[in-house]
Amino acid sequence: MPRYVVERNFPDGLNVPMNEAGADAMGGVIMRNAEKGVTWMQSFVSADKKQSFCVYDAPSPEAIRATAQKNMLPVDKITEVRVLDPYFYR
């Protein structure tokens, strides 16, 4: 399955509460992603919470866009990536 990095911009910042409501929201994202065969692997958020870089395994960029729309998440850029392990060369 291809792997992608999705760049998102949040002008007002990304605020996910650290409580049951936040956990429920993330669970909903995971469930809606699974409907299209999209797996959210990991995300990185900038210190100001205005930008995120999310790693996904997905069948296509279109599947990521479709799930982002269902999850009401912006998509600014999708890049297909491969793993480069710094220990590969040792």
Rank of each mutant, 00 (worst) to 15 (best):
F53S: 12
N33S: 12
P59M: 07
V29H: 10
R65D: 00
D57L: 01
A63C: 07
G28D: 14
I64E: 02
F44V: 08
D57M: 04
S52W: 07
E62Y: 00
K49D: 09
N33M: 07
R32K: 15
V29I: 14
G28T: 06
N33D: 14
P61M: 02
A66V: 05
Q51H: 13
K49A: 14
K36S: 12
P59N: 08
C54V: 10
Q51T: 15
A34N: 06
R65Q: 10
G28H: 11
A68F: 03
T67G: 04
E62V: 01
Q42H: 13
D48T: 13
M31A: 12
D57Q: 11
A34E: 07
I64V: 10
V45C: 11
A66S: 10
W40R: 12
N33E: 10
I30G: 03
D57V: 04
A47M: 13
I64R: 03
S52H: 09
D57E: 15
R65H: 03
F53H: 13
P59Q: 08
K36H: 12
V45W: 09
V38T: 04
V38P: 00
R32P: 05
V38N: 01
S43I: 04
T67D: 05
K50G: 11
T39G: 01
F53W: 15
R32V: 09
G28Y: 09
G28M: 10
E62N: 02
D57A: 05
S46T: 15
E62F: 00
A63Y: 04
C54P: 05
I30N: 06
K36G: 06
T39K: 12
